[in-house]
C-alpha cells in the first residue's frame, strides 16, 4: 500500500529517490566491523595510532598507563607475538607496518633519546636507523614493501619530512 502511494504520487517518488541518494552520500554502506571492534576494545584500556597492513592491525595499546605495540591478525582474529619489541624501559610513540606484516618501523622514547628503528618480525631483531643530519623523529610511515619510509623529524624547532630507502 505504501509502495503504491510512492509510485502513484510523483512527489513521493522523488522524495524516496532523494532519500536513497542522500543515504549514499552519507556513506551508509561503510559498516563498522563489530566483531573485530569488540576483540580490539576488549583487550586494553585504550588503543591508539592504528596502522593497517593487508591483514594486520598494529596499534599502541595502553595497559595500566603504559603503552606497548600490539599486532592483530585480522583474518585469524588473534594477537601476533612481537618478541623483543616492547621493552620496560622504552615508550613507543609511532609505529607503521609493511603490507605483509614482516617489518615494523617504530619511533620510541628510551631514557633521554628518541630512536627510529626497524623491527624484523621473523628474526625478532631491532635495527636502529641513525638520522643524518641529526634530528628528533616523531611519526613514521612505511610503504607496503617495508623498504621505503617517511619520517617526520624535528630539526631546529621545525618539522620536516625525510624519505629514506632501506637497502636490504
Amino acid at each position: 500500500m505504501k509502495l503504491n502511494i510512492l509510485f502513484v504520487n510523483p512527489s513521493g517518488f522523488f522524495l524516496f529517490a532523494l532519500l536513497i541518494g542522500l543515504s549514499g552520500c552519507l556513506g551508509g554502506d561503510m559498516r563498522p566491523m563489530n566483531e573485530l571492534n569488540d576483540l580490539i576494545s576488549g583487550s586494553s584500556n585504550g588503543f591508539r595510532e592504528p596502522i593497517l597492513g593487508n591483514q594486520w592491525l598494529v596499534a599502541l595499546a595502553n595497559y595500566q598507563g603504559k603503552d606497548r605495540i600490539e599486532m592483530i591478525d585480522l583474518r585469524k582474529r588473534t594477537k601476533v607475538p612481537l618478541p623483543g619489541l616492547n621493552r620496560a624501559d622504552s615508550q613507543p610513540i609511532s609505529v607503521s607496518v609493511s603490507a605483509n606484516g614482516e617489518r615494523l618501523a617504530v619511533v620510541r622514547q628510551r631514557a633521554d633519546r628518541t630512536e627510529l628503528l626497524i623491527y624484523r618480525r621473523k628474526l625478532g631483531t631491532l635495527q636502529t636507523l641513525e638520522l643524518n643530519p641529526k634530528g628528533v623523529p616523531r611519526r613514521v610511515s612505511l610503504d607496503s614493501s617495508g623498504r621505503v619510509l617517511a619520517v617526520q623529524i624535528s630539526r631546529g624547532g621545525k618539522w620536516n619530512i625525510q624519505v629514506i630507502r632501506l637497502q636490504g
Partner: peptide
C-alpha cells in the same frame, strides 16, 4: 616548505 607533519606513504612507495 616548512612545518611538514603526518607523513603517509602509498603502498607502492
Amino acid at each position: 616548505v616548512s612545518n611538514q607533519q603526518d607523513p603517509s606513504l602509498s603502498g607502492s612507495g
